[in-house]
Amino acid sequence: MKVLVLTEQKLMEFLASARTAYDVRVPVSLHDGTRVIGRLGEGPLAIKGGAINQKITSIFFPHMETVLKCSNGGFESPEPAPKPMLVVGFTKQDADCLEFIDRFYNDKFRDDVYFNKRDNAVIVCVSGRCGANGKLLKVSGDNCDMELICDGQDYIVRAYTDVGKSLIEDIGSTEIVPEETLEQIEKESDQLCVEGLDLLNAASKLLLEDKVPDEFWQSISDRCIACTSCNLACPTCTCFDVFDRTNGCGIDRWRIWDSCQLDGFMREASGHNPMGQELIRTRRRIHHKLAADVTRWGHITCYQCGRCDNVCPTGIGIMSVCKEMVEKYG
């Protein structure tokens, strides 16, 4: 069996050609070197380097977006974009996050504003030897349409869904190389440590068994400055606030990322606030993903993407907290 391999140059050409049918988004490096998912040409291609710091699901659930337009007493909902998106740059963990929030936004009520962008979008994962500092990124498997597995330089392309497969066909003739490298990467990928997951599972168990006392949450919340970064970076955090704003010709209703780390998040008109204490909010941040969602969805909803630990300015992202928790109470 042979596999398809693309050089970065060839990949660029492929992505450029995909633009006729797709709104193509790829990791690019911005002015000061910050990597984000952007449009082709917004900056130099920056596929290598590991997970993007930005909340990866912001592609479909952006910081702020209109959910409704009101003018002359009438209402108008946003329309799907003319072209579906093709997004490169998800890690395996990112794709898992996306898979979960797809289910979340589709549950009971379908969030059409989200699916306007998400429907028909093509997800391309990046894995292999292109993580930060040369680390290996876990091979995604079939949690996406297509995957680019980096051998350190070039990308081995694999398609999982029909769309992915037809896209590969479009690429046409390219170098074909033996698949030993791929086998080797996959083997290494399988061996990538599962410590993180074990830790989360242990923490989850402690929480479900209610073995973590309030003192613990207080000591963590003493260090939380309510910057909201953890929520705003997390790909499975979905909370938003809604507000109206007049523009020249009418009123737009917007939604904007919100954070359960804010006191006002649940404060009601009466002043009653079920989450009116720091320690309750800190607990919520962890408990939600590791216990509440286990009860609701049957699994934890943190996929160890690492963003909250990166972005928390005081070092109390989910992994650090779980580590402390399991050391103390496990």
Partner: peptide, 20 residues
């Protein structure tokens, strides 16, 4: 029960009580 609510449809997250 009353909670702060924004979407009414299980999306905005303002009205949660643990897993509910």
């Amino acid at each position: 029960l009353e909670r702060y609510m924004k979407c009414g449809s299980g999306k905005c997250g303002h009205c949660t009580i643990e897993h509910l």
